[in-house]
Design a protein around this nucleic acid. Sequence first.
DNA 1: TTTATTGGAGTAAACGATTACTTACAGTAT
DNA 2: ATACTGTAAGTAATCGTTTACTCCAATAAA
Lengths: 334, 334
Amino acid sequence: MTGKKNVSIKDVALRANVSTATVSHVINGTRFVSNETKQKVHFAMNELNFRINSVARSLRSRKSYIIAFLAPILASETSNFYFMSVAAGVQSVLKQRGYHLVLSDSSDNIEVENKEISMFDSQMIDGLIVAPASRDCDYELLFGDYPVVYIDRVPNDCERDSVLIDNKTATKEAIQKILDKGHQRIAFLSGPLSVTTTIERYEGYSETLMSAGLNLDDSLICFGDVSFESGYRNMGDLLERNPTAIFVTDNVMAMGAMAYLQDHSIRIPDQLAVVGFDDFLWTRVTHPPLTVIQQPSFQLGVKTAEVILQRIEDGTSGKQEYRLNANIIVRQSL
Amino acid sequence: MTGKKNVSIKDVALRANVSTATVSHVINGTRFVSNETKQKVHFAMNELNFRINSVARSLRSRKSYIIAFLAPILASETSNFYFMSVAAGVQSVLKQRGYHLVLSDSSDNIEVENKEISMFDSQMIDGLIVAPASRDCDYELLFGDYPVVYIDRVPNDCERDSVLIDNKTATKEAIQKILDKGHQRIAFLSGPLSVTTTIERYEGYSETLMSAGLNLDDSLICFGDVSFESGYRNMGDLLERNPTAIFVTDNVMAMGAMAYLQDHSIRIPDQLAVVGFDDFLWTRVTHPPLTVIQQPSFQLGVKTAEVILQRIEDGTSGKQEYRLNANIIVRQSL
DNA sequence: TTTATTGGAGTAAACGATTACTTACAGTAT
DNA sequence: ATACTGTAAGTAATCGTTTACTCCAATAAA
């Protein structure tokens, strides 16, 4: 297409008067080569401006040094940046170990997700990190012959390693803190129950209320879409039930909720106490700054990358579950 | 490593009693194959659970369907999500056209950037989209034999296509709007002048002030780091020079600045009018909501993806410059 | 002197697809 | 009967590496 013929290891070998094996071994340091010969090879490589063809290398060595990360990352301009932060963590480890990260967006949609997975033919990737769009999907059939690690959430029939946040414990602590402030009517606003994170948070909420001797009031509980608009709208609806506090399990929904409260001049925390999820910078510029559960998103990525690299390099598989703790950052909204 | 031998086109051919050529042509639809034979091949593929090896395919066909995006994306937990939004735009087009996106983080650091570029050996990627860390770098030497498109910024010796925002015009409009409100002491807070975006914005600022007959007051102008903390700190310093308005050219710095103003109970816009950059959701939850220049970040990605795919598919090269307009979103902070 | 050992480097078969070229056969025109 | 045409599919070279073997010469051991 470009007309330029590629310089191969063969050309280098010819130029340096050595064999292709020698060139390869010089490049990879895989066997002893005398300094003299090394020099010749390096010289030839420079002269010809040789660049190794990593595709050919992958084909032969059956290793691509590419890891795919499949999550609802890029859905839209208004989407949650949580997984971006996670991706940053993954990336930081991979880069250090000489791997590349391929990002893939599932849009939190099973069809899209399945199509993406089937696009990762065997040999193309060395491993897959996935935040499953739903618990109800038989992923095992789809995966190729590479290690898979679930991140943030797991499907029902989890047969793989997983790296998760201890959502339940964190939520329990948060709700307890709200209770300690004397609140009884605590609203719960979250995304749908189709992912395990939401379920765990809901369990944390309900179990804490119940063990405090309170009844669950369904009208104070809302499972909406994960979006700013949904947060805004549902905040309005929930307010009519006269809660004195609200717990929002999603960052973007919390933004929407906060926008509603600001637009309607609701005083926080006097009229309504608010606790959100994820400690992104914006939570420091609301009025007042938001109390949140801080998920170690970057660390989640780091841990996951370490787990999958371990599996890749060991050649083992398993279904270890790792849980990372989330902390509460107390600011003025509670 | 796993012990499982891979099913190849050869195995399928054997099973279906046809040649590898036929199997290949069935897979790719590259020549007529009778229905009967097609059936046999599909049947064999299913039975053997055949998955094409895209690495081998790439090697032979010299096409990987991978595009790399190199930008300061994942620098840290507190980094700017602007490029993530851009990446989303790129991704949306690529996915649709059957390409994969590889994200690479430059950390806005020339050394890191160069290392990343040299990692993209020829043949590994079909194209590169890059937001250069600095204007002063001779990128041409580094690039391999693939199309390159600059995004958001360009280096001094730009020899490639570029897709940019019309920063100068947008900034001029914003400053003019601020002037129209009667402000004379307008502070300017931005990142370093090492990238063209900043330069263009600064030019927009200074030219507008000067053509309004005002002198530039250096003490009202600050080029700091691009970070929340820098925004916070420099906001404090600038306030001592008694501006009545401030223009912040970076989203994260603006967050820091807003946090400072809130912590010190500065009334916006009475005591200080504020105009920021980038219309992310958080700008709607500050008190009051922020007036900003809205960069079409997603669209920037879309356009860039289209440009590079065009180059890839045409096999041409060039140095066309595309500029996208940015709009001002007026809210209560001005 | 013969044999073993070792250091340094070459030969060529993979890896799994794509694709230019060839072939086989059937039908048709001469 | 012969040549020609067209249809369907097979053969094998090729992409650029890696790597299991092999090889040769020089030195050490016998």
